[in-house]
Nucleic acid binder design. Structure first.
Length: 432
DNA sequence: TCATATT
């Protein structure tokens, strides 16, 4: 045989890790996951059953997801059950189909960006066929013949796509190009729609933003309390259900690579790379296992995931602020120091020592409530106060957040540190 | 000089 062995593309079964999610409707609400599991196991291998429950009541919504270890098994379940069986208590036969986005996901489709304008199919396939069998390649072209700088490519297996992605993304420059290629998973239809909506919104909100007619939701849209599983490239899919709110007003999605770091840019852009290259950028390439991280990204258009400060924390004064990067400082001082605070209620809500954060460069449109929302994910917020100009009522863009524990404050610091325009700073952290 | 774009 030839040199080296080809990817274990054996006969059929295991495309390793390529589990498939099925949606099942017409499931009687009284059935348990265990019951469903044993029932479906008569027809196909099923790893898991997840009943879809009402968020508030936690009761079954009459449907579930099945996780099958392979497409073959999933197909077995579909053909054996879809419209074939009516469970006791259901009004019509089971509906068994691929969950939203599954089919697209199974295409192993990649988006390729930063292609030269004059690129031809042969060049792209030559490069990418090193990592697997290309099933489909489509370079997007504009008016003439010139490429729009991007393409879609399908591989046979996820492994092939993943290895190409890891090998090429941000690393490989095409002939005559000064920037490396971008390779990421193509958007699903849902993500596409979400992005389109977002784009429309951001353009619409470009109008003279007279006054705050809409809710500022910059932080409010944060995926509370966790750092997104950044896959190393690509946008954060805008469609994280439920989480997405209104578009940001000021700190919009603009590709402003001077002070905004989006993952997509961060990866490929020279001007940004040094920041990330200091080793603080969370990327977990290989760790996507068999997962359903489908749209598990945060829905925060403007607020990107935190990037820790290289080399610990800054050693200069907290108030630097240069380009609108905000800071948090630990403050054991009294939150009600300034007379210009929004003293609606004179509640003294100072936390224990080490649990009071002083926050610089809060977005203009934030009030106490928004500030509290932004930080509540990290612990019990005793109070959140944005300071406002007494005369005009305009935010001074700084304030306090007090937690019930220093630990919560620490968590807030590490989570919020470097959040786009917000970086977190604390004396305590620095000293220790 | 917004040039990184999504079938």
């Amino acid at each position: 045989m030839a040199e080296g062995q080809k990817p274990p593309n054996t006969d059929s079964t295991s495309s390793s890790g390529d589990s498939v999610k099925l949606f099942v409707g017409q499931v009687p609400k009284h059935m348990t996951e265990a019951q469903l599991l044993s029932m479906f196991k008569e027809f196909a291998l099923v790893d898991e059953v997840n009943i879809i429950k009402d968020k508030a009541t936690r009761t079954s919504r009459g449907c579930c997801f099945l996780i099958c270890p392979s497409r073959q098994e999933a197909d077995k379940a579909v053909s054996a059950c879809h419209n074939k069986k009516t469970l006791h208590g259901a009004s019509s036969p089971l509906q068994v189909k691929y969950a939203d986005g599954e089919l697209e996901r199974l295409e192993h489709k990649l988006f390729i960006g930063m292609l030269p304008k004059n690129v031809i199919d042969a060049e792209v396939s030559a490069l990418f066929s090193k990592y697997g069998n290309i099933k489909d390649l489509q370079i997007l072209r504009g008016s003439q013949q010139t490429s729009k700088g991007c393409a879609f490519l399908k591989y046979e297996t996820k492994e092939q796509a993943l290895s190409a992605l890891e090998a090429i993304n941000g690393k490989y420059k095409m002939e005559g190009s000064s920037v490396p290629l971008v390779v990421k998973w193509a958007d699903t239809e849902k993500e596409r729609n979400a992005r389109r909506a977002q784009k429309a919104q951001s353009q619409a909100s470009n109008v003279t933003n007279t006054d705050s007619t809409h809710q500022p939701s910059l932080f409010g849209a944060l995926p509370m309390g966790y750092i997104p599983p950044y896959n190393g490239f690509g946008y954060q899919a805008p469609g994280t259900y439920g989480l997405m709110q209104y578009p940001l007003s000021s700190m919009q999605n603009h590709p402003d690579f001077h002070n905004v770091i989006t993952p997509a840019q961060g990866n490929a852009y020279r001007g940004i790379t040094p920041n990330l290259a200091t080793g603080m950028a969370p990327r977990n390439f290989g760790s996507m296992q068999s997962s359903y991280m489908g749209s598990a990204y945060p829905a925060v258009p403007g607020l990107q995931y935190p990037i820790a400060y290289p080399g610990g924390l800054m050693n200069h004064r907290p108030l630097v602020g240069s380009h609108g990067s905000a800071q948090l400082a630990m403050a054991n001082s009294n939150p009600t120091t300034s007379s210009s605070a929004t003293t609606s209620s004179a509640v003294q809500t100072e936390g224990p020592p080490g649990a009071n954060l002083f926050i610089y460069h809060i977005p203009q449109e934030f009030g106490d409530q928004e500030l509290a929302n932004a930080f509540q994910a990290f612990g019990g917020v005793l109070s959140a106060k944005v300071f406002v100009d007494k005369a005009t009522g305009v935010s001074k863009c700084f304030g306090f957040v007090s937690y019930d524990s220093p630990k919560a404050a620490q968590t807030a610091i590490s989570m919020m540190n470097g959040c786009q325009h917000v970086s977190v700073w604390s004396d305590a952290y620095q000293v220790d």
